[in-house]
Design a binder for these strands. Structure first.
Lengths: 232, 232
DNA sequence: TGGCATGGTTGACGCGGATCAAAGCGGACC
DNA sequence: GGTCCGCTTTGATCCGCGTCAACCATGCCA
């Protein structure tokens, strides 16, 4: 029996509107799975055989060029949906950034289930539209923002995202202090920069007293207003 | 009566699966509208009051910074869907690039109609997922590709898109020669470059015999293989 | 406690693409 | 045909970020 308590709760996020019987049915076709940090779950250009719902942890969606350049095109947090339903191939790899637990479904099973449960499809549509909005605003960042603007925007986004998903034990609202689920290289891959530029911008913000960097991956926002100003 | 023949045909694209009676019902809540080149249809950050289906013409989706930098985050071709259903605000402006005809719906009407027609929602979901895939692969271009790679990728994409939507009177398959629906500035806004860089890369490709530029907005692909190689 | 591996920082330098400026177009209109 | 006007091209210069290389911090294991 795969339907643990947390799994049910997280799946509920994509199920609001379904009645309890349906939620149980969905859980019945899902299988819980642990993924450790760095471990891939889905490969770019592979047949789309599975989709999943994130229970906890953070995962990255990436695309790469043949010569090894990588771009992170999305980040999945708890209760986010990953994989490509209704499509033959997935256009992005999915790799865990932290140890993560997911609830995986065979794509065929999930597609069939979704098609016969309009409320679930509706929820999925809403999420996909929201993700598209987020992705488009990230295009503006990649195409038109400077390195300092990128870093500031990134820190603000992280502060919001990590607070809202409860990855930091902090009351609601943007987190003042948080632990990045990214290495410097991964931050660079999100922002379309190099690791050196990311590092330099971080220390610059630290020297200016805008943020503090108490540990490798920890960030404390000291002056949110100037971050907002810098983000443009 | 707003449901002209083309409108019905184009709407049919998002309606496959609905029976005829439903298609007629959808057309009944839509209103046909002409938009001339350069005219805006939806404004960034405005209340999302209308959604639309493109009958013909090409439109751009853009986001801008306060200081006027612009990024084109999407392009809508005939039978594409624009606007933000199930959302309070639209995160992108929509402006016609060419004279265009669209079939507009009040968002409320459309949302209500969609929620009671699962087949339509499913179609919408499939389209949104496909658009998300396209958008993500564009992120790779914006974040990691060089100017020559960007231009080559752009030309190949245009060649595919313009052929497939029938904007050029050419048999199926990628178009060898086509008219860009973009000015140089707009190409720059798609690729995250400046107008000067776009111009220089175009003339470079022309000098190398990869493409020909018979008129301002016309492109002829002379050597598709090297474009593919350049696109990376 | 020392050695090593991994990841992050810092510095010197060069290049790709932005910026600034001026000179071609080519179409619309008279 | 002439003369605008907006768009595009071309040239000169600059600078932000990438590249290359060395150095430093941290944590792990012997």
């Amino acid at each position: 029996m795969s339907s643990c308590e947390t799994c049910v709760v997280r799946n509920r996020a994509i199920c609001a509107g379904l009645d309890n019987q349906e939620i149980v049915a969905l859980n019945a076709i899902g299988r819980r799975r642990s993924v450790s940090a760095g471990e891939p779950l889905i490969w770019e250009d592979d047949d789309s055989l599975l989709v999943a719902n994130v229970i906890d942890g953070v995962l990255k969606l990436t695309t790469s060029t043949e010569d090894g350049r990588e771009q992170i095109v999305g980040v999945a947090y708890p209760s986010d949906f990953i994989g490509r339903p209704f499509g033959q191939t997935s256009k992005a790899s999915v790799v865990a950034l932290t140890d993560a637990r997911v609830c995986v479904f065979s794509r065929n099973d999930f597609d069939r289930f979704a098609r016969s449960h309009p409320e679930l499809e509706h929820k999925l549509l809403e999420r996909t539209l929201a993700e598209l909005d987020r992705t488009r605003s990230w295009m503006m960042l990649l195409g038109r923002k400077t390195a300092p603007e990128k870093i500031a925007t990134f820190l603000l986004e992280m502060s919001d995202r990590l607070a809202e998903t409860g990855c930091t034990p902090i009351t609601r609202g943007p987190a003042k202090r948080f632990t990045l689920p990214f290495s410097r290289q991964q931050v660079a891959d999100v922002l379309g920069l190099t690791i050196e530029t990311v590092s330099r911008q971080f220390t610059k913000l630290k020297n200016e007293g805008v943020i503090d960097l108490p540990a490798r991956r920890d960030v404390e926002i000291l002056n949110r207003a100037s971050l907002v100003a810098l983000a443009g």
